[in-house]
Design a protein around this nucleic acid. Structure first.
Length: 340
DNA sequence: CACCCGTGGGA
DNA sequence: TTCCCAAGGGT
């Protein structure tokens, strides 16, 4: 491990670079409001900064306070998250907002031991909020931190394994700057998103090059080590768009699963005999859908299942449509235009 | 721990 | 096309 002198020099090199080259324009870095930092950190989970920015601005406009979030209508909430993916994030965040209202009198807790009790906040997000909003010297170990530190110290542990995170937390606790822990954590992530990125890193440009063991030893290509992810399982489905006048049959997906609680045109494994009007594929983390799209006029009135209803086309904007649903709808509209 | 949960972009 | 990637957490 480094000497105390090295640690002090490392902090200075990193934070000087951050002060000069860090991304100080990000909308959640305007101030240290724990609510805004919280929202941004949830959105940034597995999601890139450029994708998040417009969602973040809209979200804090729609729900300016923890109370607004706690009391929000579920469909409005989901609509605000439409297209971001990993929709349990926003549902968990609302549960957590309700926790803050009831358990902490509406004030976001400042103790990491309490913060981590909130739904949807795990070790990374707890550390990020603790350090950025409350100035506590807590590690916030994400993929960036593991990548940067694996190169700095030539650590070959598999960063895809959950247990590996703990090793990096120990390291960060040692080297984090106790005077500017939030800036320290963000500086590592800014560095990891560009100069020390996963592909084509430019260590010669890094403010940390003299501390980087892998760079100095010519072993950059070995770090970080990450085992391969499994390929998504392919599913062949039929999307059946049933029309009755200006209304369409919609089905609410079961809670908890993939795209849980979303309203969708019915999706079935055994499709109708008629020809599809189009098809598309959609790739999730662990599944790949190949969907053939059919249109049908409603047949004689049969009882609707509990999870189905007719929705007027003019009401579609009030519903959150996940991307596969949007793709189905695009195919239907394209088909209709072709008929004229 | 292994698996589940979205989406868009880049090589 | 296919692969990998991105500021993870819940179960």
């Amino acid at each position: 491990m480094w000497s105390d002198e090295t640690i002090v020099a490392f902090r200075k090199a990193l934070l000087d670079w951050y002060d000069a080259k860090g991304r100080d324009h990000l909308p959640w870095r305007m101030n240290q409001d724990p609510y805004r930092i919280w929202v941004s950190e949830i959105m940034l989970q597995q999601t890139q900064v450029n994708t998040v920015i417009p969602y973040f601005n809209r979200f804090v406009m729609l729900f300016p306070s923890i109370r607004d979030l706690a009391e929000a209508d579920e469909e409005v909430l989901l609509k605000a998250w439409e297209g971001l993916g990993y929709y349990s994030r926003v549902r968990n965040m609302q549960v957590a907002a309700q926790q803050v209202m009831t358990d902490y009198d509406g004030v976001f807790p400042s103790d990491p031991a309490e913060i981590i009790k909130l739904k949807g906040i795990g070790p990374y997000t707890c550390g990020a909020i603790s350090s950025m909003a409350f100035g506590l010297p807590e590690p916030a170990v994400d993929g960036n931190v593991m990548r940067v530190f694996s190169r700095l110290f030539e650590i070959g542990d598999d960063i895809a394994k959950p247990a590996t995170r703990k090793l990096f937390e120990l390291l960060v606790r040692i080297v984090i700057d106790p005077d500017r822990p939030g800036d320290f954590n963000q500086a590592i992530m800014d560095l990891g998103s560009d100069i020390c990125g996963p592909v084509n890193p430019r260590p010669e440009e890094s403010p940390l090059r003299e501390f980087n063991a892998a760079y100095k030893n010519g072993t950059m290509h070995l770090y970080p080590f990450k085992s391969k992810a499994k390929k998504p399982v392919v599913m062949d489905l039929h999307g059946v768009v049933v029309r009755r006048g200006n209304a369409y049959l919609m089905e609410k997906r079961p809670s908890g699963g993939l795209l849980g609680d979303f309203w969708t045109f019915p999706l079935v494994e055994e499709g109708p005999e008629d020809e599809p009007i189009g098809s598309f594929t959609h790739v999730f983390s662990h599944r790949k859908w190949r969907v053939q799209v059919h249109v049908q006029e409603a047949d004689s009135k049969r009882e609707l299942a509990d999870n189905m209803k007719w929705v007027l086309e003019e009401d579609f904007p009030e519903y959150a449509f996940a991307v596969p649903q949007q793709k189905m709808w695009e195919i239907v509209k394209k088909h209709e235009r072709k008929l004229f």
